[in-house]
Design a protein around this nucleic acid. Structure first.
Lengths: 288, 288
DNA sequence: ACCTGAACACCGTTCAAGT
DNA sequence: ACCTGAACACCGTTCAAGT
């Protein structure tokens, strides 16, 4: 019952992809590079350097060579390099060689921008050939799950955004329709497909989220994943609460089982969990 | 390769729970209310009002009645009420009737504070009686999963924090040891227990995250969950990308199947997914 | 031992003004 | 049509100073 009635500036915002519902707002006339065609910046990780004002494609109407496509691409690069916390409109503008206010010509809010960046990386998920009638749905499910996980780890910043936005951009939709198409082929009753969908992809989401953050944390601390693991392990075991077991996010007892690396263990766990889920689908189908 | 070598102020921060590792820092002498005993603020949702300076328990050394316990409790209340985005040190201080700088006597950074708040709500998860030898591990797993989900929905702000921090506070550890104890009782080989653990609890994490955010979004927009669903549904189906299916986070085809509410569908999906996971564990155990 | 004021280096966003 | 400067209302955090 906090008294905050007198500040309803905008209606609570839904999604960039749903803009134009209240058509009163002075909308911009669709500047070049509608994010429907954000361009494949797929494995863009390598090209470091984050170059400054490079103004290549600038014509009369775009003196700074700005458009949604370029803004989105540079946003992704910046988010990959420095994380969501350090990403700001001013920082992005600097990278693009303009002032922060210029961005507001192309985008209504920072949230809109992030939603665009999010959808653009969803385009990196490889989708299996859905027209192949002979393909095994298990293989298709594995491919989607592995690819989704890869994207979550490569772009750790998307995790909180996936939880926050509606994820109804064109690429997000393409991905989720593919998943549903595969679910239809499992043989599960339609009323159960959504539950099974959830089981598999919420698992991948959670797994990729933790993994991605761990990887980033190690990179920031400039230590290997194994070093970080041993460090945290050592610190924790000195605490009184330590009662012989835990291993939340790293990857289970490192030195206990054998000389495996964190990455090997994680790989095993992911694979096993995925097979468990497939076995679960088969078991539930048999019960129907 | 961004040139940011000359700003390494602090080492990248690991966790409040690991403080004192580099013992150089001028640590405060353990003010009353160590978060190990943060107190049960369990179902604290109801008591609205967020009262201002109420200074009840103030003695000579705590003129404002401040301590980690109270700070944590009020943080949770504020985070529940207004979300992570609006939570600030200044806002919290205002609520406690002090200036923002006072908080830094009790806490090193905002991150430390959030980690404490996070661990405190982990204390709300109900843990089954692990000493009962006759209990079915399936029931214990269900209880843990349902309770974890409830907490994720009640405190939607914890989702990004769980991904961000190490979750090694006393209450988090208690929860994860409980989960591991249950996993040991499944009959799975020890080397597979972590994978199965992941499958189940990453699923719950993902599910609870999306659900929690959806619930909060509806609350902010001041519409019912069904209204919000129909609204989003309507907007989406006007788009060209709409190709007959999607239903990412809401709860599947609302009016398609029957007159079910969003909440009923979500309940069914969660239950089915959980049974799928249990069936998966059983199937994998049989294969070993 | 605890708390504060002033200050630093940031934010997102608006708005009137420039070209 | 596109871009900017100045301004508003915020941030987290430090540090010297108060009691």
């Amino acid at each position: 019952m906090a008294s905050e009635a007198a500040r309803a500036k905008r209606p609570p915002r839904t999604s960039v992809w749903l803009e134009g519902k209240p058509p009163g707002r002075s909308r911009k006339p669709d500047p070049t590079g509608r994010p429907d065609a954000t361009g494949d910046i797929s494995g863009a990780s390598g090209d470091s350097g984050v170059s400054g004002a490079s103004g290549e494609s600038c014509d009369a109407d775009h003196p700074s060579g700005l458009d949604r496509l370029r803004i989105t691409a540079v946003s992704v690069r910046l988010l990959d390099a420095e994380g969501l916390a350090k990403f700001s409109m001013r920082r992005l503008a600097g990278e693009l060689g303009v002032t922060a206010m210029s961005l507001y010509w192309y985008v209504d809010t920072k949230d809109d921008l992030l939603e665009m960046a999010l959808d653009s990386v969803f385009g990196e998920i490889r989708v299996p050939d859905l027209t192949d009638e002979n393909a095994d749905w298990r293989d298709q499910l594995r491919e989607l799950a592995v690819s989704y996980r890869t994207v979550l780890v490569r772009h750790a910043w998307i995790s909180p955004l996936i939880g926050q936005y509606l994820n109804i951009g064109p690429r997000s939709m393409h991905f989720s329709s593919a998943v549903q198409a595969v679910m239809r082929r499992t043989g599960l009753a339609p009323s159960h497909q959504k539950g099974a969908f959830s089981a598999v992809f919420q698992f991948v989401y959670g797994f990729g989220t933790i993994e991605g953050h761990y990887v980033q944390r190690c990179a920031e601390a400039e230590v290997s994943q194994d070093e970080y693991y041993r460090h945290a392990m050592g610190s924790i075991s000195e605490k009184p609460e330590f009662q012989g077991s835990f291993h939340q996010e790293t990857g289970e007892s490192a030195e206990a089982g054998g000389g495996d690396t964190v990455e090997e263990m994680r790989e095993r766990d992911f694979t096993f969990a995925l097979e468990l889920l497939i076995a679960g689908i088969e078991a539930m189908r048999a019960r129907e």
